[in-house]
Design a protein around this nucleic acid. Structure first.
Length: 292
DNA sequence: ACTATGTCCTGCGAGC
DNA sequence: TGCTCGCAGGACATAG
């Protein structure tokens, strides 16, 4: 399941390979309902646009688009607003294509002759001859188009947030710390794997009420989260289930997991049996001895 | 304003 | 061996 490190890995590969490329044509499938109703808007924004940049916002992949000749910008030229707009603004990014991979979504850079996989919901043909393909068997992924930053996750970036702000996110929260870590309005990009792994490394039980954490524990948690996310990015993400990067390659960080999906096995630090419980409806793994 | 729970969706593995 | 069933989970909707 793509979380921050997996999305970061994908985004870096996409930035290398499709940034600057022009979009020649777009095909959108009929299947996922949200995509179906948004299809005309998405197609209109993508057609004949150029990809200026690819970046990550939480778990979202954001393609900054520049409208090409004969599309959105030309249409706007007839309105009065275009006349007062300075020339510099004309070349600025106007729209973003936002991709959320959900659970099983994959965004692949493919050769046109490569066979189209089952559950392919979108194909974007690029001027370079490559194709960008969105494949998602379970259809939890989402595609959308936005202007400005509306529709992007609002939480703090876990790798950027300073300690005081981090601590402030959990103040007065009665929800379990694990649930708080998963809340994208607080921190954006943390999912089930890295919530469990960071809590283990910080020595904190997942069910602890967020507001009950001491400043020392919060410091440990922030440090553990940064370390685990950075290490996972360096390893190209965790390939559990079916995550692969934009080139179809697997990550390596699943071999570094200390508790996630290791229930019943001995804790690598103390030897106690790793437990699995349900928190916020999510499988939650922890060491009953190392985590308090 | 929070918090907790249900919902979507398909592939896979456990169990009979 | 082959089937059914239940689980996996990110984000959002809804209920409390």
């Amino acid at each position: 399941m793509p979380e921050l490190p997996e999305v970061e890995t994908i985004v870096r590969a996409l930035a290398r390979r499709v940034a600057g490329d022009a979009i020649v044509s777009v095909w959108l499938g009929e299947k996922p309902e949200p995509l179906k109703s948004l299809a005309p808007e998405i197609a209109a924004a993508l057609q004949r646009s150029r990809i200026i940049a690819v970046r990550r916002v939480g778990k979202q992949i954001v393609f900054d688009l520049e409208a090409g000749k004969g599309s959105a910008r030309a249409a706007r030229g007839h309105g009065p607003a275009a006349r007062v707009r300075p020339a510099a603004a004309e070349s600025r990014t106007q729209r973003q294509w936002v991709v959320h991979l959900g659970m099983t979504g994959r965004l692949l850079v493919s050769a046109p002759e490569a066979p189209v996989e089952p559950h392919t919901h979108a194909i974007v043909r690029l001027a370079s001859g490559r194709e960008l393909r969105f494949v998602d068997p379970r259809r939890f992924g989402r595609l959308s188009v936005t202007g400005g930053d509306a529709g992007l996750a609002t939480g703090s970036e876990p790798l950027d947030v300073d300690f005081e702000r981090f601590a402030g996110l959990f103040r007065k929260r009665k929800t379990p710390i694990k649930s708080a870590l998963l809340n994208q309005k607080l921190l954006r990009g943390v999912g089930n794997i890295y919530a469990d792994e960071s809590l283990f490394r910080a020595g904190i039980r997942p069910r602890r009420r967020a507001a009950s954490l001491t400043r020392d524990e919060l410091r440990r948690l922030r440090r553990a989260l940064r370390q685990v996310l950075n290490a996972a990015i360096a390893a190209g993400g965790s390939s559990v289930a079916d995550y692969v990067n934009a080139d179809g390659d697997q990550g390596l960080f699943q071999f570094e997991h200390r508790v996630y999906q290791r229930d019943g096995e001995p804790c690598l630090v103390c030897g106690a049996v790793v437990k699995r419980v349900l928190v916020a409806g999510r499988g939650t793994h922890y060491c009953p001895r190392c985590q308090r």
